[in-house]
Nucleic acid binder design. Structure first.
Length: 335
DNA sequence: GGTCCACAGGAAAGATAGGGTC
DNA sequence: GACCCTATCTTTCCTGTGGACC
C-alpha cells in the first residue's frame, strides 16, 4: 500500500506543485536577482493555514538552488524560534557561523554582528509564521543586512503589520506580496491524486479523493492527514484499495493529527487551560482561572495565565471573544 | 455621574537555568 | 566550585477600559 511514506508527511516538498503556478512565478521573480549575485526583493506570503504557503516557499527556494550555484538558503520557523536570539541563531546556523555560539552566554548583539560580517554568497532566509516573532525589530536588522534576502510567511497581512514599527512597515509596503486563498475541492483533489500516485500502490478513485478534499474544507494539511491516516489503516488491514468508507473513518484521526501537532507545543499549564476550555465550551476568565487553580499543584499567577491564553489565541487554538468584563474563551473552530 | 470590580496588557524586576571563565 | 553573563520565564505593579450598581 505505502510505497513512499515521505510524500504523506506534512512537511514534504513535491517535485511538481499543483495549482500554485502564479504564486511560484511571483516568488521566483522576486528571487531572480539572486542569480545575478544581487539581493532579492523581500517577499511576503499571506494566506490561511493549509493553503500551501510554506510548501511553495520551500519549493521555489529549492528550484533556485538548482539554478544558481552560489546561493545559501535557510528555513526558520518563527513559532519554534520566536525569540530574537533563537531566530538569529537559526539564521546564523544557515551560514555555519554558530560554531562557538552558546545558547545561554552569547549576547544577541554579537549574533547580529556576525551576520553583518557575513560575506558569502547571496543568502535567502524563509521566515515562516513570522507574525509569531516576539520582537519584530529583528526583521529591520535582517532587512538592512547586506546580501540577505527575506521571504516572510504569515496568515494575515494585518497580523504582521500590526506588530511592526512605522519605519519597517513603510519599507515592507514595497515588498512583493503573494496572496494564497484556500484550495478549492478540485485543486485539493488534484493534490491528493498526485500524492497517491507518488507514494501509494493503491486503487483510489477520484470521487473518493474529492470527498476527502471536501471534508478538509480547503486545508491541504488536513486533507493529507486524512489520506495518511486512511493509508496507514488500509496498510494494517492488508487492503489494496482506498474506498470512500475508509476515508470517512479516517477523517477524525486525520483532523486530530493536525490538532495534535499544535497541542504538542503547549506546556502542561497551558494544556490544563486548554482542557478546561474544552470541557466548558465557553468560559469567562474568572471561572477559567478558578478551575485551573483546582487542577494544578502550583498554579501560575493570573497575569501569567493571561499570557498563556494570549499565546494560545495566537496559535489559533483558542478564540477570545468580547472585551474587558465581557471576555470569554472557547476553542477555535476545528479544534 | 460616581464608584466598584473584573479584565487586558505593558513595563520592569526577580527567579531560574545553562554555559563560560578563572 | 564560585562567580559571571545571558536568555527565558514568571511575578509584581500599574494603567486603561467598560459593565454593573447605587
Amino acid at each position: 500500500m505505502i510505497r513512499d511514506a515521505r510524500v504523506l508527511q506534512p512537511d514534504f516538498v513535491p517535485r511538481e506543485v499543483e495549482h500554485r503556478e502564479e504564486a511560484v512565478d511571483a516568488l521566483s521573480n522576486a528571487l531572480a536577482p539572486v542569480a545575478r549575485g544581487e539581493p532579492a526583493e523581500t517577499a511576503l506570503l499571506f494566506g490561511p493555514s493549509g493553503a500551501g504557503k510554506t510548501c511553495i516557499a520551500q519549493y521555489t527556494v529549492e528550484r533556485l538552488r538548482e539554478e544558481v550555484l552560489d546561493v545559501v538558503t535557510q528555513y526558520v520557523n518563527c513559532w519554534q524560534n520566536y525569540s530574537r536570539f533563537r531566530a538569529l541563531y537559526r539564521i546564523l546556523e544557515g551560514v555555519g557561523r554558530t560554531v562557538d555560539v552558546h545558547r545561554q552566554s552569547t549576547p544577541k548583539d554579537e549574533l547580529l554582528e556576525r551576520l553583518a560580517d557575513y560575506e558569502g554568497p547571496p543568502y535567502v532566509v524563509v521566515l515562516d509564521e513570522v507574525d509569531q516573532l516576539e520582537d519584530t525589530r529583528i526583521l529591520y536588522d535582517l532587512y538592512r543586512t547586506q546580501g540577505l534576502s527575506m521571504v516572510c510567511i504569515a496568515n494575515r497581512e494585518t497580523d504582521l503589520f500590526a506588530g511592526l514599527d512605522d519605519r519597517l512597515a513603510s519599507r515592507l509596503h514595497s515588498a512583493v506580496r503573494v496572496q494564497f486563498d484556500k484550495y478549492g475541492v478540485e485543486a485539493l483533489t488534484d493534490i491528493l491524486e498526485a500524492r497517491v500516485e507518488w507514494g501509494l500502490e493503491a486503487d483510489v478513485d477520484r470521487e473518493a479523493l474529492a470527498f476527502v478534499a471536501d471534508a478538509a474544507a480547503g486545508d491541504a494539511r488536513v486533507a493529507i492527514g486524512i489520506l495518511r491516516s486512511a493509508a496507514r489503516e488500509a496498510d494494517r488491514a492488508g487492503a489494496d484499495r482506498l474506498t470512500r468508507e475508509r476515508f470517512e473513518d479516517a477523517i477524525p484521526e486525520g483532523r486530530k493529527a493536525v490538532r495534535r501537532a499544535s497541542l504538542d507545543r503547549l506546556t502542561p499549564h497551558q494544556r490544563t487551560l486548554y482542557d478546561v476550555i474544552a470541557e466548558c465550551g465557553e468560559i469567562d476568565p474568572g471561572e477559567l482561572y478558578g478551575q485551573y487553580q483546582e487542577r494544578v499543584e502550583e498554579p501560575r499567577t493570573r497575569r501569567t495565565v493571561r499570557n498563556y491564553l494570549a499565546k494560545m489565541v495566537q496559535y489559533d487554538l483558542v478564540v477570545a471573544s468580547g472585551e474587558n468584563r465581557g471576555r470569554t474563551y472557547r476553542l477555535a473552530d476545528g479544534t
